[in-house]
Nucleic acid binder design. Structure first.
Lengths: 202, 202
DNA sequence: GGTAAAACATACCTACCGGTCGGTTTGTTT
DNA sequence: AAACAAACCGACCGGTAGGTATGTTTTACC
């Protein structure tokens, strides 16, 4: 069973997540967070030493959870395309708010400096791109993907997923499954018209 | 000849650009901007009614300029790949600060609400992605690109450019020209190993 | 070169926000 | 039920930053 304290902390983190996702770091006040989970500012400062620590704690909790979830999806011996497909599908299965976390970090990453910033970057790198990177590295080794830098390719893949995540995409590509296939096809085969490529054998 | 007022306005916009690029909107103070161009806060408020208006004015000026510059690059009758190449090259030729503007908008877009926000989105859309979209639309019509939604593909292309713009990419892909070819190749042909595709003719 | 208006500078106001602290409630132990 | 600790409240402080009011200089034009 959870103690009273754990419940409160969980509530605070949850409220903080919602607000930090909606607005920028500086535009979210501690009192707004407090009001959102029916406590006062004093209660938050009882559990967290500062606004910055609260933000980082919320990020860590969220990314750890997400990483564990997504990590399962690539733990298979399938080929590269299939592993990427499973990973993306699992990502799409996440509640919408959770998926926004990546954009959140890219947005607020300039708020902090020094150690806190490095910590943020590392935590982010370890969340999604690193998982993709692992799959891509294997894919290159197996000859399924063309040679290239795995990390750069993983960023490309993540960026592609982000594109499909935009509101506009929903009006063009309906349904999660077709979005996934869209991403995979574009990533593997590109946007060029393959039929234009001449077949070497007459 | 420029009047004194125009020079001051230009200085303010230039200083604002540098600071807004380096930090988040809320973390840039009016006094910092004032100090950066050797005036006082009062002078800024003489020319701009508010911080928000100053930010938007600086964005508009920058994007207008950039759009004019990039627009020339696609005004040719070359094929799709070549036009994209020229557009990207022109983009890479921009001073580093100017290239960061895209990321800036994506970062600060949540600061504003209502009309100001819509204005921001429209201005952004009209800057880079719309130019790419035009080229891609032609490319699809000419059969050079596989059928697909032009706008979504343009976002994909822009995202790819952004990936290559990251610091890490410099350590993997040296030189602007090879970055451009990397982007084009990945966009047109994808990351999949084409040699794996069986040739239908025996 | 004189003058009115534009273009600043200076000082100040006010709202807000992160953080603190004394005190109060609630729960637990003995 | 006394004693103690954990959890929480709410008023408050210090600093800050957007914005303004007013005085001063500079520009532009005659």
């Amino acid at each position: 069973m959870q103690t009273k304290s754990e419940i409160t902390i969980s509530n605070i983190l949850s409220a903080a997540e919602g607000l930090f996702l909606a607005r920028q770091y500086a535009d979210v006040t501690m009192e707004q967070i407090a009001a959102a989970c029916d406590v006062t500012k004093g209660a938050i400062y009882y559990h967290f030493p500062s606004k910055e620590k609260l933000y980082l704690a919320m990020l860590h909790a969220d990314l750890d959870e997400k990483r564990a979830l997504l990590g399962e999806a690539i733990a298979s011996r399938a080929d590269c395309a299939e592993r990427l497909r499973r990973l993306t599908r699992r990502f799409f299965d996440l509640p919408a708010e959770k998926r926004e976390l990546i954009r959140l970090i890219r947005r607020d990453i300039n708020v902090f400096e020094g150690a806190a910033r490095d910590d943020l970057v590392r935590t982010y790198q370890a969340s999604l791109p690193e998982l993709v990177e692992e799959v891509i590295r294997d894919g290159i080794a197996a000859g399924e993907l063309a040679p290239g830098d795995p990390r750069l390719l993983s960023w490309h893949f993540v960026a592609l997923v982000e594109v499909v995540l935009a509101d506009y995409a929903a009006s063009v590509i309906p349904g999660a499954e077709s979005k996934i296939e869209y991403v995979l096809n574009l990533f593997l085969n590109g946007a060029g018209n393959q039929r234009n490529g001449e077949c070497p054998c007459p």
